[in-house]
Each structure stands twice: as structure tokens, then as C-alpha cells.
Amino acid sequence: MPWSAEAKKRDEIMSNQVPIAEGLFSWPAVKPALLASRCKQCGVAAFPVASSCMACSGQDVEIEELPSRGTLWTWTVQQFMPKKPYRSDETPETFVPYGVGYLELPGGVRVEGRLTENDPQKLQIGMVMDVVFEPYRIEDNGDEVINFFFRPVQ
């Protein structure tokens, strides 16, 4: 195909990035961030955004952006491909083990998320990581589904 058509197709794909769930993080945004609710009564933050507070049962919450850098509280590596409801582009043949961990975001909460690193030798409790937003899978209609990940600070 001519280069212009190829570029056009790429543009279409690029312009069709959709978040994996609405309200999980700000999207589209120049600087996307995870979104939390904070209870106006007790000040405790929750992720994802909830309409009531698990700490004090308060129902008056406001939405805020969580910090983009934190420390790894604990982690594991998922070595086998999960069954449904797991939904990625992978097949059992192409499955790549992935890291999962809780990132402690100062002043916020500890958020559970996938890690960009899957080598146990390179993961340790207390390491500093950034929240990043990257493509997770491509839908049949060509939409690129964006998820949040935790990436070790270089």
C-alpha cells in the first residue's frame, strides 16, 4: 500500500485509543493520572472511584488525581495464562508472564496494577515506580485499549 495510506491507517489506529474502563484514569489527557475518590468526612482515599467511603460509610466524596510515582509494597509474577475473565491479545503460545504489584502512592492509597517488568531478579519491595499508561490489547474494531502499568524508574 502507498505510504500515505499506511500512515493514514496508523493515524486511525492511534486516534482510537480507548481506556480499559471509564473513570479509572483521566483519558484522554496531556498527563493522564489514576483517579481516586476522597471522603470529605474522614479524608481517606479509594481507588477506583467509589460513591461511598469504605472507612467511615460517608457518602460525600470528591474525585482527585493520584500521584504518578510511588514505591512497590509487594509483588508477584503471574507465570501461567489466566482463564476468563482474562482478556488480552495473547494465546497460550504467545503468553508472556507478567508482574503484578501494589504501588504505594504517597498521600493516596496502595493501588494494585500490572508491572512492566516481569523478571523476579529485577523486582524488589520498596523500589520506586512510575504509573504509566500503555496499550494493553487491540479490539476487533481496531481500537487500542489503554491500561495503567507500574514501571521501574530508570
Partner: peptide, 25 residues
């Protein structure tokens, strides 16, 4: 939310692994 299962975190085995990982540390 369904996203939690789609990204592969709806796994009891991960929780147990992460809890003992922290505890061992």
C-alpha cells in the same frame, strides 16, 4: 469492574503470593 479480570488480576493465587512475599521480606 470487569477491567480487573481482563488485565489478569482476578487471581486468588496472586494475592497469596503477594501476601507471603511481603511477609517473607
Amino acid at each position: 469492574g470487569e477491567w480487573y479480570g481482563e488485565v489478569g488480576m482476578m487471581m486468588t493465587t496472586q494475592f497469596f503470593a503477594m501476601k507471603i512475599q511481603k511477609y517473607m521480606h
